[in-house]
């Protein structure tokens, strides 16, 4: 009786959570400062139609894909390093992208290279530089010193923050305004170019993770165990780190940093579906995507004049969650 009650409750809670997230996602394109006239939607020259198809839908798609990339990268980092606090955000990779974008703004580089903004390119380079720096520095750590890697990430983040402060100090009002907006994160996109870029990135990320799902299952036990059973752990870890940093670097260079999604979502999915990591890949991507749509919808519901930056919403949810995670980890 007790057991069946638990199963019913857990199935029920899963259903309620998915139902709520999908409902919000479906309603999301209709929420915002300008109201959409549903009758006008199929009149493609109407304002409602333009807002809906050129702003709202691309934004929802962008939010979904961004959430999926953040959550998958979080899952990947946590599995590769066997540490629930490891994400591209906590390791300073997002901060690297922000600093890169900041440098582009300070240098006044706004021109486009091959259709991509200079900010995006510099942001991407900042993320990749940080990954290679971390990989280089990690060579000086023993395998067991995962906590030290986390501390290295925090040290890098602090260093990048200081460098960003210098940029603020030297910047003029317009540059600083651009920089502040960027550091708060935004899912606002016009048209379908950026969502399509993320489609490609998400597919590459999911495919890479899926192809190596059994290797990840072994790595989720221990590095030594994976190596003993036949996984070339160093090569695989480096490959997956580069793929996910490529994804994160591209995303952050467009959206700015969006914290905590990579931390919260893999943890929540593992609570909802307590199974080994290979069975959680797609669920994590879906859940992350829907979660970020819900957060983005919240930004438009809360403040309809000039929407609240998404990074603030995820940080307000994620900060307390981070504290909970650290405390519950120590309890063990």
């Amino acid at each position: 009786m007790g057991l069946s009650l638990t199963i019913w409750r857990s199935d029920m809670s899963r259903f309620v959570i998915w139902f709520a997230l999908v409902s919000i996602a479906l309603l999301s394109p209709f929420v915002g400062a300008a109201s959409i006239n549903i009758d006008d939607l199929l009149h493609f020259d109407s304002l409602s139609s333009s807002i809906f198809f050129e702003l709202r839908l691309p934004r929802v798609a962008f939010a979904f894909l961004a959430g999926a990339i953040l959550a998958l990268s979080g899952l990947l980092f946590q599995t590769l390093f066997r540490n629930a606090l490891m994400t591209p955000y906590t390791l300073g990779i997002s901060s690297g992208a922000v600093l890169g974008a900041g440098i582009a703004i300070k240098l006044g580089l706004t021109s486009l290279f091959f259709g991509l903004g200079a900010m995006s390119i510099f942001g991407f380079l900042g993320a990749m530089f940080t990954v290679f720096l971390l990989v280089y520095l990690a060579r000086f750590l023993r395998n067991s010193q995962q906590e030290s890697l986390l501390l290295l990430g925090i040290a890098l983040s602090l260093f990048y923050s200081a460098a960003l402060m210098v940029l603020f100090y030297l910047g003029d009002t317009l540059q600083n305004d651009m920089l502040i907006r960027f550091t708060m994160g935004s899912l606002s996109v016009i048209g379908w170019v950026y969502p399509l870029v993320l489609v490609v990135i998400t597919l590459i990320l999911i495919l890479s993770i899926y192809l190596f799902r059994f290797e990840l299952q072994l790595l989720s036990i221990s590095d030594e165990s994976a190596s003993l059973k036949g996984v070339h752990t160093k090569r695989l870890t480096l490959f997956l780190l580069i793929v996910s940093s490529f994804a994160i670097g591209t995303l952050v260079s467009i959206s700015g940093p969006i914290g905590f999604v990579g931390l919260i979502i893999p943890h929540m999915v593992s609570k909802l579906y307590p199974s080994s990591v290979d069975k959680r890949i797609l669920k994590t991507a879906l859940f992350g995507g829907l979660f970020l749509i819900a957060c983005d919808t919240l930004t438009r519901v809360l403040d309809t004049q000039s929407e609240l930056p998404i990074g603030i919403v995820t940080a307000f949810i994620g900060g307390p969650f981070f504290i909970y995670l650290i405390i519950s980890r120590n309890k063990k």
């Binding site: 599995t79 299952q217 989720s220 036990i221 221990s222 593992s270 080994s276 990591v277």
Partner: peptide
């Protein structure tokens, strides 16, 4: 084991 949810059969299969 880091992953607390891996089952015995899955583990032996590895």
């Amino acid at each position: 084991v880091y992953d607390p949810y891996i089952e015995l059969f899955e583990f032996v299969l590895l």
